[in-house]
């Protein structure tokens, strides 16, 4: 049974985590389309920094891995290595149709197919490429998921 102390500590941890998730971005073989849209979310019109989200250079400082692309065989090991370097707890957002299912590249010989086959994914953002609003919504879904043990999306 959790003591009051651990319970409070966990509450504080969740609170802190939700208020400023630091993200890292990795392109595992996408066409750049998703990457420029992720970059666009950081720039003045969309500006995700107002939610406390910050793009971080090193995986060791990141909570959220924003991953794009169908995972080429060359990038697979790198993706795994980056995921393993991230401190726990870590979350993965897969952005773009090709990261979800292979998309337009389905059947090409050099791709694994989707990100889910390599690392566990928490939130999927579909679209080829998804609009910046959709990417922000995906991140917001992740934050909602962290906050409540119940399903993040309300029905209806």
């Amino acid at each position: 049974m959790d003591s009051v102390w651990t319970k409070t500590l966990n509450q504080v941890k969740t609170w802190a985590r939700i208020n400023s998730p630091w993200a890292i971005h990795f392109n595992s073989g996408s066409c750049n389309g998703c990457d420029i849209e992720i970059l666009a979310t950081l720039t003045p019109r969309y500006d995700v920094e107002r939610f406390g989200i910050k793009l971080q250079g090193s995986p060791r400082h990141a909570d959220v891995l924003i991953c794009t692309g169908p995972v080429t065989r060359q990038a697979k090991n790198r993706l795994l290595r980056i995921y393993e370097q991230m401190p726990d707890p870590k979350f993965v957002i897969a952005v773009g149709s090709c990261g979800l299912s292979g998309g337009a590249f389905q059947g090409c010989y050099n791709i694994t197919g989707n990100i889910n086959e390599v690392i566990p994914v928490d939130v999927y953002v579909p679209g080829c490429p998804p609009r910046p609003e959709a990417i922000i919504y995906g991140v917001a879904q992740l934050l909602a998921k962290l906050q409540a043990p119940a399903p993040a999306v309300k029905e209806g």
Partner: peptide, 30 residues
Amino acid sequence: FVHRGIEKGAEARNWVQNMYMVERVCGICS
């Protein structure tokens, strides 16, 4: 690291389908 095998993949799709794949060679200059 981004080699996906598009040229080979193009040989498995018809002329019309390929249009959508070659657009996705690069997202900046599609």
